[in-house]
């Protein structure tokens, strides 16, 4: 399926990836060619076929409800871009 400029703008926003205006035509062309490759699978009749999410089709194992973690804030925040008083800082969140 060929994408147009507005599709690409919408996808970029949905994925929170900033895109420069001048890059949109090239991105649109490349995404369209990828979707063209993907669309070759549309011709196949898959009615009645169960989707497969995991190759081995096993079931979820459960973990005992036990606390195994201790406070590692200092180590984990040492690699954070911006923290203060133990909090991660981001531009103001407006609700």
């Amino acid at each position: 399926m060929a994408l147009d400029r507005s599709d690409v703008e919408q996808l970029a926003h949905l994925a929170r990836i900033g895109i420069q205006d001048e890059d949109i035509p090239a991105t649109t062309a490349k995404l369209s060619s990828i979707m063209g490759l993907i669309d070759t699978m549309q011709a196949v009749d898959t009615s009645g076929v169960e989707p497969l999410a995991h190759p081995l089709e096993t079931t979820q194992r459960l973990r005992a409800d036990v606390v195994t973690e201790s406070n590692q804030r200092e180590a984990l925040q040492a690699i954070a871009p911006a923290t203060e008083q133990g909090l991660y800082l981001v531009p103001r969140v407006i609700e």
């Binding site: 606390v67 973690e69 925040q77 008083q85 909090l87």
Partner: peptide
């Protein structure tokens, strides 16, 4: 529950900020 739904961090209310946020909870 004593621990979180997908990690072994405690769920106690009112702890110091981010002291109950493990690797998994932080999405490392």
């Amino acid at each position: 529950t004593a621990s979180k739904i997908f990690s072994g961090s405690a769920t106690t209310f009112g702890a110091e900020p981010n002291t109950q946020a493990s690797l998994i909870d932080l999405g490392m």
